[in-house]
């Protein structure tokens, strides 16, 4: 199969879906002539014109709100937040408007809106350009949340997002755009709520998401050399959350580590740990361990950022501890 980058896979998803459905339109800062800061929307303005690739002022509350209005009137907007950190600026429109509109109206409206953004650290962007915030969106009812870790999922999940009738927060990782992987040419989607088993194993269940999946796989290879057989699960979406795949894996391994780049405190790891002890306590032979970013603003300097964010070594350490 051909290999393309994560960014190319995303662009293909947008392009193919825009071709399929004329109601899909894009809004965001610098997404037209410039093609987006990570070049995901490159070429789409030329192909679809300014009525469908709408460049916006730096005005997140305004254009996310406008996207809500577009979605409520028959369009299927994709609003791009250049950095996840800017979601706070648009937070009322995301949390109070898009997420609740259908429920508050007793089902009279739907809001088919995709908010595409990218998050994560590792590039020295410091505290206002490096956050990982999936837990915040996961907490608020009414939003679906997807975080692809590879080009195949990026394309397949984005297509699912664009076909969904609900607000979807679609979270990319800034250090994944140039990663390559196999992506079929023919049309396919990746359903929400189905985790992927990236590597089968019998000793430890290692749950992860987004770029941390790459660290998890690296840690699993290192653990294998020490005779620890790790099963790596990529959540792919946090809403809906595929608890079943985790529990099935635990029945075999009886040990669980959750690794993510978001802060430890109330991260998705905390939720998974709680769910597992509610639903699968009897399968646990050891305390659940979490590997996560420290509970500090993401620092700038390389030596500090490397410590603040979890890497393969931190995950390997947790794997060793959970089987010890």
């Amino acid at each position: 199969m051909r290999e393309i980058t994560y960014a190319q896979a995303l662009r293909e998803a947008l392009d193919e879906e825009m071709e399929r459905d004329p109601n899909i339109l894009l809004l965001g800062e610098d997404i037209g002539v410039y093609g987006g800061v990570f070049k995901v929307t490159e070429g789409l303005l030329e192909k679809y014109g300014p009525d469908r690739v709408i460049e916006t002022p730096i005005s997140e509350a305004g254009f996310v709100g406008a996207a809500v209005g577009l979605a409520m009137t028959g369009k299927r907007p994709m609003a791009e937040l250049m950095f996840m950190d800017f979601a706070w600026v648009a937070s009322d429109q995301i949390f109070n408007q898009a997420a609740k509109m259908r429920y508050m109206s007793g089902g009279r409206v739907k809001v088919p809106l995709v908010i595409r953004t990218q998050q994560g650290g590792g590039r020295g962007n410091a505290a206002q350009h490096s956050q990982s915030l999936e837990a915040v969106f996961t907490h608020i009812p009414g939003l679906k949340v997807a975080l692809p870790s590879n080009p195949y999922d990026a394309k397949g999940l984005l297509k699912t997002a664009l076909r969904d009738d609900n607000p979807v927060v679609f979270i990319e990782h800034k250090l994944l755009y140039n990663t390559k992987g196999p992506v079929p040419v023919e049309d396919y989607t990746v359903p929400f709520g189905q985790a992927a088993i990236k590597r089968p194993g019998d000793d430890v269940t290692l749950v992860s998401l987004s770029r941390t999946v790459l660290h998890a796989l690296e840690a699993a290879e290192a653990a294998a050399e020490e005779g620890i057989d790790v099963e790596v699960i990529d959540l792919r979406t946090t809403v809906p959350l595929d608890l079943d795949t985790i529990v099935q894996s635990l029945k075999k391994t009886n040990r669980l580590v959750v690794a993510h780049e978001a802060h430890r405190r109330l991260g998705i790891g905390a939720e998974i740990a709680a769910l597992v002890q509610e639903h699968a306590f009897d399968y646990l032979d050891a305390p659940i361990l979490r590997v996560a970013a420290m509970d500090i603003p993401i620092p700038y300097s390389r030596v500090l950022e490397d410590v603040a964010l979890p890497g393969p070594q931190d995950i390997l350490d947790a794997v060793r501890r959970v089987v010890a």
Partner: peptide
């Protein structure tokens, strides 16, 4: 809220309905 009569919602957040209306207007224009 009742889209059947063009009503895209009252709103309990002061000012929040304005960008939604701009989006709806853009929708009509498009």
């Amino acid at each position: 809220t009742d889209p059947a009569i063009g009503l895209l919602g009252e709103n309990a957040i002061v000012g929040a309905g304005a960008p939604i209306a701009v989006g709806a207007a853009l929708s009509a224009k498009l």
